[in-house]
Design a protein around this nucleic acid. Structure first.
Lengths: 67, 67
DNA sequence: TAAAGATGTTAGGTTTATATTACATAATGT
DNA sequence: ACATTATGTAATATAAACCTAACATCTTTA
């Protein structure tokens, strides 16, 4: 199962969903969906997010066992 | 622009496209498309590939400037 | 207290990832 | 020589990502 720390890191930088979306060229709804874990973004978007949030991509998204 | 080292690492392990596809639950055509850089896989698939090829995901896929 | 900003959420639409099937070719083994 | 395996590639189909637009709620601020 895919997990991520987008919401946590976005909050740490004080970015709104819209601001983060703008940085990585997606809409705020896309950011919201990702934060809710409702879908698995493309690796291109994931890499942009890691860049915007200044973290290694492996620390932003990871797979967990357990359904 | 998205770049990757899938083909190189797959060769290093001596896996066929089919074998690698089986390990990460996609078809051999999907592996072929990724190796050709024809599309940007989901991060879920990218993480599975990094796991199968025993490399950090950031070393398997990365973004490059220059169209 | 009214306005503006941030988030949650949903519906419908477009684009792209991925599957299935298929055919061709090159390489390898019998 | 023939069969098998690996790869390239293309067509069509489906599922999922992502967009636009909209409305509701909550919070902050003028």
């Amino acid at each position: 199962m895919l997990r991520n720390r987008v919401k946590e890191l976005r909050a740490r930088y004080g970015y709104t969903q819209s601001e983060l979306g703008k940085k990585v060229d997606v809409t705020r709804q896309t950011i919201a969906f990702i934060e809710k874990g409702e879908f698995s973004p493309s690796i291109t978007l994931a890499l942009k997010l890691a860049d915007a949030l200044q973290v290694e991509i492996g620390e932003l998204f990871w797979l967990e066992e357990e359904e």
